[in-house]
């Protein structure tokens, strides 16, 4: 539903959207009663009709391997007062403590996209495939030792961090990928890709 409707229009659209048996007749009644919202009602009726029904039993439920990781991410977004908040203490990832601005600056200094750095931060990239040179550069930029950063990057991505997630960089909820895969799938330019690949040498 659009968000720019005036209150009266929004109320009418909402009432239409909860009609138990929406059909041509109901739509006609609404259009006749509220001709000023004719177009919005028609568009809503079509959007409701064409929205896929997600409550149908899917033919195949995908493996929920990543559900545990997603749950950890979700917990990290919650306020400490929330009963679902992660309370255990785990190794602190120094990249999680960065301000949005510093995160962007580091991405720039490393000459990578924020998506790539986000994947690095969230352990989406398998730490064992990361070039030492890159880890060393990141450690220097965030002001921690290489060992400290390595420990954090090797932590299981499903482990709750207890840290608030910085929403500027989106975490990944998918499976882990190798460094090479991350290079190809993180919106990097050819020049950036080449520079990263050169770090492996």
């Amino acid at each position: 539903m659009k968000t720019t409707h005036d209150t009266g229009e929004r109320d009418v659209l909402h009432a239409f959207s909860i009609e138990p048996n929406r059909d041509a007749e109901i739509l006609a009644v609404y259009v006749e009663q509220y001709p000023q919202y004719r177009e919005a009602l028609i568009d809503l009726s079509i959007e409701l009709l064409t929205a896929p029904n997600l409550d149908e039993k899917p033919p195949k439920i995908v493996s929920s391997d990543s559900a545990g990781r997603a749950w950890s991410r979700f917990q990290s977004l919650l306020s400490p007062a929330d009963p679902a908040f992660a309370t255990k203490n785990f190794a602190i990832n120094p990249l999680l403590d960065l301000s949005d601005q510093r995160f962007r600056e580091i991405a720039k200094e490393l000459n990578v996209t924020r998506l790539f750095l986000t994947r690095l931060r969230d352990s989406v990239i398998q730490a064992s495939t990361l070039p030492e040179r890159l880890v060393s550069q990141v450690a220097q930029l965030v002001g921690v030792g290489v060992d400290t950063l390595n420990t954090a990057l090797h932590a299981s991505p499903s482990m709750p961090t207890g840290q608030r997630f910085k929403s500027d960089g989106k975490p990944s909820a998918g499976k882990q990928m190798t460094f090479d895969e991350a290079i190809e799938n993180s919106g990097l330019s050819e020049e950036q890709k080449s520079a990263l690949k050169a770090m492996k040498g």
Binding site: P52, L54, P58, K60, I61, V62, S64, S66, A67, G68, A70, W71, F74, D82, P83, A84, F85, A173
Partner: peptide, 28 residues
Amino acid sequence: KELALEKRHVEALFKSFYTRIETSLNQS
């Protein structure tokens, strides 16, 4: 949050929600 479900309950519901969304997105 005000429903005050325990963490294990929220976790179970979240994982079910996530898995269904993930399945749907893989299809669409």
